[in-house]
Write a protein that binds this DNA or RNA. Structure first.
Lengths: 201, 201
DNA sequence: ACGTCTATTGACCAGACCGGTCAATAGATG
DNA sequence: CATCTATTGACCGGTCTGGTCAATAGACGT
């Protein structure tokens, strides 16, 4: 690890990206260190010199990416009591991050789905992924909600809707710019307001 | 194939289930015929005697499962102009089918996600999977919808909500009986009514 | 120019596992 | 007991794996 951190930033990044891509595409077992070294443009010996083993490389990637993403999402998040507004802000940040660092997101989602016993992800990873989907929040104004809708339900609904929307958008407009998507997504949040909030709130 | 169809129904089912499970768990490439024969309790030679090759076995599974599921979902579907009611019925059928034949569903979803060039799924498979998610329907009464919500939007919303709900339920109550889940899901459809339909419809 | 030292290479392991074959065997049938 | 078919599993040539290590390249001090 020390050897790796003494490398130039550019080279470190090349290796990290190659590894993230491979571990995103395939299961831990099927992911190949050969492929990683080829993609990174380094020799096999070098990789094992830097990280010791495949498993240590994997754990490094988990810690590294969780740390990065968690910081970027939470940094300077504005306070608001409007649940939908909050969701809108977080979605915007996630969308921008996901286009700036798609490899990190792909990788973390895969980590979240797998979770074999012997390479259990750290608490940090769990927190990070969860943070993307759920809001623990006592600061939300629930009086806006329609009859029969409580906070937990509203959070689920917002999560499912934004998730579904993002998935559909990615499928139908695979190459569109983030900014355009965010504009288009405004319509989604308007709809959410119609559905969740009482008339005239 | 002829040899296979002459086997007892029980043995055919054992082989099909073993193969479905293996092809659901792993990519086509990584799926192992050895594992399949072990799980099915037959010899390796037998499997290749029945199907000729790994690829032919895979194609047989695609055709077989699509045919079965499509029939079961569409059979005797009642007519209604209430979109949410329709979703509720289809969800109930899907839920029951998914618990009766979980292997088939897992397999088809995997087929839909992968789609390598050389083992392109048939049109039948495409139709079947799509049919699970989308409703083409001109018979829906859209006058119930709130201001600003059209049919396409409503279909998306219902899809995303039922999908999200199913996913959450599967995670939080992994071993619950279908019947209980369907009762619990009634609440979801009530919520959908509150959100999508005008007051008092 | 030369010796020293560290960073990097890639040919090379032993072993796991692959899809597919086929001579040998078991079991049913007349 | 002979015949015939259904089934077996040891075996094949391959590919690919994670990991090693003697050999090499390149930077640096003198």
């Amino acid at each position: 690890m020390e050897a790796f951190e003494n490398l130039s930033q550019a080279k470190q990044q090349r290796i990290i990206n190659a590894a993230l891509r491979e571990f995103s595409d395939k299961s831990y077992r099927s992911a190949s260190t050969n492929t990683i070294t080829e993609q990174a443009g380094i020799s096999k010996g070098a990789l094992f010199h830097y990280f010791g083993s495949k498993q240590q490389l994997y754990h490094y990637l988990m810690d590294h990416t969780s740390q990065q993403i968690k910081a970027k999402v939470l940094d300077g998040l504005p306070r608001t009591d409007d649940l939908i507004e909050l969701f809108q802000i977080i979605s915007q940040r996630k969308a921008k991050l996901a286009t700036s660092y798609p490899l990190m997101f792909d990788f973390l989602y895969r980590v979240f789905r797998e979770q074999p016993e012997d390479l259990k992800y750290t608490e940090l990873v769990r927190q990070t992924v969860e943070l993307m989907n759920v809001l623990s929040s006592d600061t939300i104004d629930t009086s806006r909600f329609r009859e029969g809708i409580d906070l937990a339900k509203a959070i689920d609904i917002c999560s499912w809707m934004t998730e579904g929307y993002a998935k559909k958008y990615a499928q139908t407009h695979p190459q569109m710019a983030v900014e355009d998507m965010l504009v288009a997504a405004d319509e989604l949040f308007d709809t959410l307001r119609v559905m969740l909030y009482k008339e005239g709130v």
